[in-house]
Write a protein that binds this DNA or RNA. Structure first.
Lengths: 211, 211
DNA sequence: ATGCGCATAAGACCAAAGTCCAATTGCCAA
DNA sequence: TTGGCAATTGGACTTTGGTCTTATGCGCAT
């Protein structure tokens, strides 16, 4: 699985900045794609591999902070590094609160930006791995029939087959049959595995006991 | 369980600022304790209830950012709100990276600070609840004998009693006996519960299967 | 030395879970 | 309409887990 290489997006309305950043990134072996506006960036199709975004705060139309908000709202979890010529404290605080990896004022040290980019890419890679794992599990959950999903929840809540049967108004036999179906479909080798899968996708039918 | 009330710590070397902040906090019904230096604050004993810290960045001796670092290093997870007269972007970025709730420049809006304090207290409360839960579970784990802990790990990894017995070179009978001891001591009503407890305290003996 | 906790283990027994096979019903799609 | 699939259930049987009781050997502390 040679997944595509790391990619750095640069969004800045200043041509020379874009060129300089692109050169810098390429000088350390990173692929770059540049955009002159937030809107232009939003038009592109998603990148399959690890990526991050270097973003100028001040831009015509949509500002960098607006774009960050936009991305978050659309569920895109791309790590963002801000650069700015005239940054203010409130601006940087807002950006960092919204999850920015770094907020750099021009002129900045090249190495500082490169370090930030590496950190951002690493973060994205981890997020992707986690997301992929969750998607995989979720897919298995989706392969369950509605009834099986229901029983799934009851099983991982620690209920006995007979209890489940009673609650659902069916027979214990049925529960057993579906239970093994669930184990197959979820590819769980043991109840312990099944519970862990349920925890990962946040399935908690029963009352999560407080101390 | 009437746990003690919320408490706001203020650390600032300026007398008038301390007084003003104390008055502001009291005006919204919050208890306050003020300190004129980081060192003085570090000398106090921990507060049992929800708390947060309003911290001036620039102070003689230990700066606010240093104190924040100090606290983190000592395992204290007190939410911090920074206030400063002459803040810079790098300063605020550092503070936010280190987990600060807010970073405000003087003069700031009273309500903004109050909102931040409430947010910080809420955060601390949640952190305390989570920590208390973990401590409780950890205590139960500590009540297990070394052998029981070992079996605990194997049980939640999904192994059968007979497999566990084989791996440990004992008999299945023994494993069963200790297994029920474990369930009692951990106060788990089912294997599912036990697995969830194990997940919470990060017990993963077996290979955590990747997709 | 005497007792206690821990690990060990056996027997007896029951409850629960898993497996294999077989069969029925109901609904959707070809 | 007819075939297929999901959901349902039963029977028979094995394996596993859980409980209770009882008992032994060991090391540590009083």
């Amino acid at each position: 699985m040679t997944d595509s290489e790391a990619l750095v997006f640069v969004v800045d309305d200043d041509d020379s900045v874009r060129k300089a950043l692109a050169r810098l990134m390429r000088s350390v072996g990173l692929h770059v794609e540049t955009f002159r506006s937030a809107g232009e960036f939003l038009g592109r199709e998603p990148h399959p591999g690890p990526a991050c975004l270097i973003l100028d705060v001040r831009m015509p139309d949509l500002s960098g902070l607006d774009l960050q908000k936009e991305l978050a709202a659309s569920g895109t979890t791309l790590p963002v590094i801000f650069i700015t010529g005239h940054g203010t404290v409130p601006m940087s605080v807002q950006a960092m609160k919204a999850g920015a990896v770094e907020f750099l004022e021009k002129p900045f040290d090249d190495q500082t930006l490169i370090d930030a980019v590496h950190e951002a890419l690493k973060k994205d890679q981890q997020a992707r791995l986690k997301k992929a794992e969750l998607r995989e599990i979720h897919e298995r959950v989706c392969s369950l029939t509605p009834r099986e999903r229901e029983i799934f929840g009851l099983v991982v809540s620690g209920k006995l087959n007979k209890q489940i049967a009673f609650e659902l108004g069916t027979s214990e036999k049925t529960v057993k049959a579906q239970r093994s179906q669930i184990m197959k479909k979820m590819r769980a080798d043991s109840l312990a595995d099944l519970v862990r899968l349920a925890v990962k996708v946040g399935i908690t039918t029963s009352v999560d006991q407080a101390s």
